[in-house]
Design a protein around this nucleic acid. Structure first.
Lengths: 138, 138
DNA sequence: GTATTGACTTGGACTATGTCCATCGTAGGA
DNA sequence: TCCTACGATGGACATAGTCCAAGTCAATAC
């Protein structure tokens, strides 16, 4: 976690109270918060932080590759601090909860040349959907 | 296309001019429109159609399984009329264009039991990302 | 063909999420 | 300690989508 702060400093980040709080909120949890949830938690530590700053900081963290932006539905994007360990997501269709998962197989290799239409394909991202134990299959 | 209208009628849909137009806009193209794009095209055929009706109708088509809702980024959802042929999506990181693709392999099978955390997993959805020939890697 | 009725449509207000910008504040170097 | 450019602020704006009360009309019954 302070790893993160150190990496940011090493990359020339000016370390402000606001950025520190946002980075800590993300790094302190293994869940996937929305921007608003980050804002709420940041506000409880630093009441005068603004919405714009949270969005800016999240955007910067994403650009730096420290955090992954996840858009599993049409709702708010979620921010995944687990950017240094490749993984995929399992989403509950009931309550929206997200778990990180690690499927076997090489997804990129599974897209044959004939299905690439001249694209330079660089990334494959899977979303598994189902019901979590709480929402249950009935 | 009139297949679609017939299926809808068979399911008890009251066939209105608005619903017909929305269904035709979707079924007539193999692209993936946003709700606003559907509205624009519907409006050119039926000027007095309202935004709410387009959203309602799209939502109903999704519930009936005739159309798939695709949220590849945090922007507007897109609607994919190709619901009866399982496929995945290849998205251009440059311009947002979407192609339907058919990877090999069984995605669901690639998620080991130990990675399911008690979920009842029913669906796996892949998004390949890269640059299309127009946006180019160079 | 007409009457009936409840499902469908409308448009505008409202909510949620996110972006922009002019101004002010401050971290970090000199 | 001072300077200054980078960052923060908050409020207006933009975009995507939802809700609702009132009006309209497709399908059914006669």
């Amino acid at each position: 976690m302070s790893d993160l702060l150190q990496r940011l400093r090493a990359r020339g980040w000016r370390m402000t109270a606001q950025r520190r709080v946002v980075a800590e909120v993300l790094a302190g949890e293994h869940v996937h918060f929305t921007a608003d949830e980050v804002l709420a938690r940041a506000t409880s530590r630093l009441p005068e932080i603004s919405r714009a700053t949270v969005y800016n900081t999240l955007g910067e963290l994403v650009s730096l590759g420290e955090v992954i932006e996840v858009a599993t539905d049409g709702r708010a994007k979620r921010y995944d601090p687990n950017a240094h360990h490749p993984h995929q997501h399992l989403v509950c269709s009931g309550c929206g909860a997200i778990r990180d998962v690690h499927p076997s197989g090489d997804l990129l290799a599974e897209l044959p040349e004939s299905e690439r239409f001249g694209f330079t394909v660089s990334e494959a991202e899977v979303t598994y959907r189902g019901l979590c134990p709480d929402c249950g299959p009935g």
